[in-house]
Design a protein around this nucleic acid. Sequence first.
DNA 1: GGTTCTTGTCCATATTATGGACAAGACGCC
DNA 2: GGCGTCTTGTCCATAATATGGACAAGAACC
Lengths: 269, 269
Amino acid sequence: MDKTPSSRSARSTTEPRQGAQAIRRALAVLRILAAGRETGVPLAEVVQATGLTRPTVHRIVHVLIEEGIVERHGKSGRYAIGNQVPELALARPRPSPLLVAANPSLRRASADIGDTLFLTVRTGNDTLCVDRRIGAYPIQVLSIEVGARRPLGVSSAGVAILAAMPAQDARKIVAANEKRFEAYRTDAGTVLAQVTAARRRGYGMREIGLVQGTKSISTWIKTPDGRPAAAMTVSAVRTRLGPRREQEVVDVLQREARAIEQNIRSGLG
Amino acid sequence: MDKTPSSRSARSTTEPRQGAQAIRRALAVLRILAAGRETGVPLAEVVQATGLTRPTVHRIVHVLIEEGIVERHGKSGRYAIGNQVPELALARPRPSPLLVAANPSLRRASADIGDTLFLTVRTGNDTLCVDRRIGAYPIQVLSIEVGARRPLGVSSAGVAILAAMPAQDARKIVAANEKRFEAYRTDAGTVLAQVTAARRRGYGMREIGLVQGTKSISTWIKTPDGRPAAAMTVSAVRTRLGPRREQEVVDVLQREARAIEQNIRSGLG
DNA sequence: GGTTCTTGTCCATATTATGGACAAGACGCC
DNA sequence: GGCGTCTTGTCCATAATATGGACAAGAACC
């Protein structure tokens, strides 16, 4: 479609290091594959999402296969993250500081609310679900699993995180994700409107969740330097989140979000 | 030292895809950084281990920092695997098949032997410790932790894995790791001699462990296609592993190694 | 204030990655 | 079977990219 190199050269204030186009492209490919989880992603979709040409993606993906970073699923021919990635990840100490800092709050909030609770971090231009707690209420929204990765803006958590950052930065991210929105049946304009609404409201919300009949509410969690690092989300069947209960849920979420921020600051995380 | 490009071009039968030198180099750098765990690795050491030039490594490392794949430790200036790597790893289902297949055997063997037990996999030219069980005996060798990564050949597990593959392949790996051996005070010749001895003996052994006064014994575990995928290792203070006990330990390890192979074949893993 | 480490940067150059065009399968439809 | 329409895979001339020698700038030590 549009393979404008201008979008690449339209760099902002901080000058990015050059002489590594290929490496950056390979990482872009990897991040798209990560969004495909175990199922994987067909080549064409990687091409579409990255805006690279097919020969280039093909070459990158196959080199990564040779290196064990990417795997190809036998029957479907889809590409997915390979087993060397978790192996590399073992180099880092296991429990992430955020997870430690958030753990007590997630437990409390889950007990108070009773619906499914998600902790979602920002990673680059994506959201990544890193924790999920199932509540006591018999109907639970379990569609999103730990490891789920989506472009910032398509989920209530993503909207919340965008709403918590300077409008300028949010716009930049939305623009960067534009090519990927189409797969989620949305577009940059819609996302930006939702972000503005969330900013005004003080929390993120989606009346129509990515799953039919569900509703989600998200609060943002900022690092000490004021930038949003994560979101805490409640998802439930829509009927369970009327106006009154919405406010209750928001109160709990915001209380716990502040508690997590406090934990991070005090180095508990 | 010798920056011979011939060692790069001396390819074997399977023709490697080209047009991605930079990506391969970036991955080589990443694997060296992974061996440095949390502590990280100074730039010079990456240069030495990869055989790349300093400007090249510098450029690669800094691009990876911009991308969040690598981190730089404040005070020391050392480079280490960044937090985006575990994030990418979340795309894969959590417990590795091998770990599942090996779990009961590790428990049994640990109970029978009482000394520290390690499960180590091969990943490329490295060994990677993926599980560790602490035994009942009061003195335990805990030097190696889950996530520890070393060039194939320097540990008893690495020697065992090399011994279990065709001599030709083992030689190729040893040659590829040559630059890195020096940091472990060994060399290709010594390693190859140990591999030959292990092959004859039927298991890997190190009288002088990487830690002073310890001794290690390793058996290999093969995948159904006959290639070694992992090793099971017992480490203990040397005095505890005299000839008689060595044979006992070997018997247990080999029994459980076969059990694990059986589990893998029957799809339990 | 020199000496010897380390890491960081520049830039002309040739090597490398690029992508347009074409090929080869796979699947469904008539 | 033949034909259209998917998908993925490959080639190779070319431009753009990554390369590394040489030089610079700190940091630590004496």
